[in-house]
């Protein structure tokens, strides 16, 4: 008997059920088809402007830095200003996300934009989130042809652009949107929910930023996105 059958048989025996119990199968099928929504905290259930404000507040609380800009076209110069303010080289790594691609990077002559997956030498990565979660100040990113996951983890600084109108009150709304985008029960290879820069408390429980992932997380919220 395979490990699979052995385990499933033991589980069924413990529960006291036969494999062909139709009533149970129906219950499971129904839950998977129509996931019941549980308790949603009131915290994030706000009109758009307040929701975005809460998102910014929560992100700052977990040591992300947050900036708001008026339109997508303002993003490249905001990125360049961030690099200058931290004394970083004028070079960023990004995928080929079309929302980023349409921004006027070329207008900034001195800024080098490298495309493709990140390498160990990249200091700054730029990504576009598909959503934000106001409840916790979380940004949501996913992998795909134009979105390497390494950009989110290898560079010391991670800059994430998120459209204000994509900021949801709660996590459930974001998952519902993912389902709409990718189809029911389907997911991109990786979905990253990122809440603040990387940290560790493993030495004497003292919280330190910049463990293995980025030391700094800078969020650019685009209001007219």
């Amino acid at each position: 008997m395979s490990g699979r059958e052995a385990i499933l048989n033991k589980v069924r025996a413990a529960i006291g059920t036969a494999p062909e119990d139709a009533a149970r199968a129906k219950i499971v099928k129904k839950r998977l088809a129509n996931p019941p929504v549980g308790v949603i905290p009131a915290r994030g259930q706000l009109p758009e402007e307040e929701r975005v404000a809460l998102f910014c507040l929560m992100a700052a609380k977990v040591s992300a830095t947050v900036e708001r800009v008026r339109k997508p076209g303002d993003v490249p110069k905001t990125v360049a200003a961030y690099l200058r303010s931290r004394n970083l080289p004028a070079s960023v790594r990004m995928g080929a996300d079309e929302r980023l691609e349409t921004m006027p990077w070329k207008a900034l002559k001195s800024l080098e934009v490298k495309h493709g997956p990140a390498t160990a030498d990249d200091e700054v990565g730029v990504s576009h989130a598909i959503a934000g979660v106001a409840e916790t100040g979380t940004v949501v990113l996913h992998s795909g042809g134009a979105n390497p996951t390494t950009v989110n983890f290898l560079p010391e600084h991670h800059i994430v652009v998120v459209d204000a109108k994509e900021i949801a009150g709660d996590l459930e709304s974001v998952f519902a949107r993912l389902r709409q985008t990718f189809g029911k029960g389907k997911m991109p290879r990786t979905v990253n929910l990122i809440t603040g820069p990387s940290r560790s408390g493993d030495i004497e429980q003292k919280l330190l930023l910049g463990a293995h992932g980025p030391r700094a997380l800078h969020l650019i919220v685009v209001d007219g996105g």
Binding site: T136, L193, I194
Partner: peptide, 14 residues
Amino acid sequence: DMSVYTTLSTGPRR
């Protein structure tokens, strides 16, 4: 409120 990284992985590289 939330850990820094919550990562969902589904299958290998597409």
